[in-house]
Structure formats: C-alpha cells, structure tokens
C-alpha cells in the first residue's frame, strides 16, 4: 500500500496509518510521511521543516516538563536551545487531563483536543517530545484529521507512524545532532 501520511486536514476520524500498511522505522531509521528513511535524512528533514515554518512550536510533554531525572533536565536544556535557534515557540503538555470546561489553548496543549491549540496559535509545524506514545499518537491523529499543521514526533521509543515525520530512539545525543544541523542550516550550509 502507498498511503502517505500527509499534513491535514484529512477529515473527521482519519484512518490509522498502521492500518494502511505504514510501519514503524527500524533502528537507525526515521519515518517521513509514512516512508522509512535513513536517520540522518530524517533529522535533516526535521531541521528543514523547523526552519522553513512560519510558526514552529515545540510541545514538550510530561516526560520532560517535570523534574524527574537529570536526563530530563538536560533534555529540557537542549529543547530550549533548538527552539531558540529555530525561533520556535514552546507550548507545554503538562498532563493528559481532559480539563473542564476546557484548556486554555494559548498556553497549553492537551492530547484530547490538540486542534484547539493549533488553531488558536496558527501553528504550522508542531514538534512533540516527551509525550507518552499512546497519548502522542492520539494527538497526532486528531491534528492530522482537523488541522493543516505539519507534525513531527521526536520519540525516545520506536517512533510514530501517525506523525508526518518522526525519529525513533531520540536520546539527548540525537537532540544535540539536531541542534547542530539547525545551526548549520541557519548559516546556509545546508
């Protein structure tokens, strides 16, 4: 099957990418629009998407938002550095509560209705990091269904087929590589 995970809006209840034959990347790979590619190609693609966006925004999730470990602290530092280089905003996803009556879309994003934050802030590229996989996939699918936001998932586990672009095993070293590539591209070296 040749299903492409393109940016939306794909309509209410878009199909799950995995049901259309989209597989998760193997070790050393990333995934771009449903197709597995070499990791370095994916990193460069993500850096380019970030730099070309009008309003790129990082969505750090609970795994990095809270002071759980020194590793999470360093991850927070790297995210801030990449965001600064790419002139990206940061809107946190502190937890997954479907808050009543609703979240404040100008300051937070929620996996149960992430489209509200995307619409409110006119975000054209959204980067998920530190979000538990099942919640990330839920949010990515809703965003693809109802918005024209290009989604990137920097996953510490096996990647996300529901994102338009996703890296797997994104440890802090990978973030450092992404930071270096963003800097290099900004200088016009790409």
């Amino acid at each position: 099957m040749n299903y492409k995970v393109l940016k939306g809006p794909e309509g209410y209840l878009p199909p799950a990418a995995s049901l259309h034959g989209v597989c998760l990347p193997e070790k050393g790979e990333g995934i771009i629009e449903g197709k597995c590619v070499i990791r370095d190609v994916c990193i460069r693609h993500i850096a380019k998407s970030l730099l070309e966006a009008k309003n790129p925004t990082f969505f750090p999730g609970p795994l990095v938002i809270w002071r759980t470990t020194d590793y999470a602290l360093e991850r927070g530092k790297l995210i801030r550095e990449i965001a600064k280089e790419a002139d990206a905003k940061i809107i946190p996803m502190p937890d997954y509560r479907p808050k009543y009556p609703m979240i404040n879309p100008s300051v937070e994003i929620n996996p149960n209705h992430p489209n509200l934050t995307i619409w409110h802030n006119k975000i054209d590229v959204g980067i998920f990091i530190g979000v538990h996989c099942h919640q990330a996939n839920l949010a990515l699918k809703i965003i693809r269904g109802g918005t024209d936001c290009y989604t990137v998932a920097l996953c510490a586990e096996e990647g996300h087929e529901e994102a338009n672009a996703s890296l797997r095993d994104t440890d802090n070293n990978t973030l450092k590589i992404l930071l270096d590539i963003v800097k290099e591209m900004k200088k016009g070296g790409a």
Binding site: P60, V64, I65, W66, R67, T68, A72, L73, G76, K77, I79, R80, I90, I91, P92, P94, N104, V107, E108
Partner: peptide, 13 residues
C-alpha cells in the same frame, strides 16, 4: 515529579 523542569518554568500555565 511534582516539580517543574526549570527550563520550562517560564512557559508553564
């Protein structure tokens, strides 16, 4: 886990 990562304190609701 109830403490905010200092790198995100300025953006937290």
């Amino acid at each position: 886990i109830t403490r905010i990562n200092p790198y995100f304190e300025d953006v937290m609701p």
